[in-house]
Simulated assay, not measured.
Amino acid sequence: MSEIKQSNSKAIVSLIMGILSLLIPFIGIILGILGLIFASKSKKEMAQSGESGKGLVTAGKICSIIGIILNVIMILIFLVLFFFTVNTDSMVY
């Protein structure tokens, strides 16, 4: 019988943080960074303990990176629109 290896808990947390970074605006940057941190720590733990979860770590990293990029783009668009709105010279009466 084959032995079922337990998934690394930090790999699962990394995937959850990556998915949340995609779904929650503004706070997603922090969640994405946390997802990347948990992914790197879980890779080190899996190398030492032999736990499974390599796919979870990869998916967590990808989701975290995409979440960070999308949140940065969203914040930049928000700032540009905000400054464009504030700095208009025309007044509406």
Rank of each mutant, 00 (worst) to 15 (best):
E45F: 13
M17T: 06
A39T: 00
I77L: 15
S7M: 10
F78K: 10
P25L: 15
L15E: 10
I65Y: 02
M46Q: 10
G55I: 12
I73V: 15
I77G: 05
A11P: 02
I69K: 06
L22W: 06
G50M: 05
S49R: 14
I69P: 00
G53V: 03
A11F: 06
I33Y: 08
K5D: 04
L34P: 01
C63Y: 11
S52W: 08
I66K: 11
T85A: 15
M74E: 05
L20A: 03
F26K: 09
S49G: 07
I29D: 01
F26A: 08
G55N: 15
I33A: 14
I19N: 04
F84T: 15
M74P: 02
N71L: 13
Q6S: 12
A59K: 08
K61Q: 05
C63F: 15
L56C: 07
G32E: 00
S40L: 14
K54P: 03
I65W: 04
L15N: 11
I65R: 02
M46F: 09
L31V: 03
K41L: 15
I68R: 01
L81A: 12
L15W: 12
E51V: 07
E45T: 14
S7C: 09
I73Y: 15
N8A: 07
T58R: 14
S40R: 15
I37H: 09
G18M: 09
F82P: 06
V86S: 13
V72K: 01
S49L: 15
I62G: 06
K43R: 13
L81F: 14
V57D: 00
A11Y: 04
I27G: 03
S42H: 09
L79E: 08
I16F: 02
I66Y: 08
I69H: 05
S40P: 02
S9G: 12
I37P: 03
G50H: 04
L15Q: 08
T85D: 14
N8R: 09
L56A: 09
S14Y: 02
L36K: 01
F83H: 12
S9N: 12
I77R: 14
S7K: 10
G28Q: 06
K61R: 07
S7L: 12
E51H: 11
L36I: 01
M46L: 10
K10E: 11
I69R: 08
L34A: 05
I62C: 06
A39P: 00
C63R: 07
P25C: 15
L81H: 11
K41H: 14
S64M: 00
S21E: 00
I29P: 01
G53M: 05
G32W: 06
V13D: 07
S9L: 13
K54C: 09
F82Y: 14
I73Q: 11
L56S: 09
N8E: 06
S14G: 01
L79K: 11
F84E: 13
L81M: 14
K61Y: 07
S64K: 01
C63H: 09
G53R: 05
L31N: 03
I75P: 06
V13M: 09
V57F: 07
L56G: 08
S14C: 03
I68S: 00
F26C: 08
S52V: 08
A59E: 04
I68P: 00
I65V: 02
Q48W: 09
K43D: 03
F84A: 14
L22I: 14
M17Q: 02
V57H: 05
V13C: 07
S21D: 00
V13A: 12
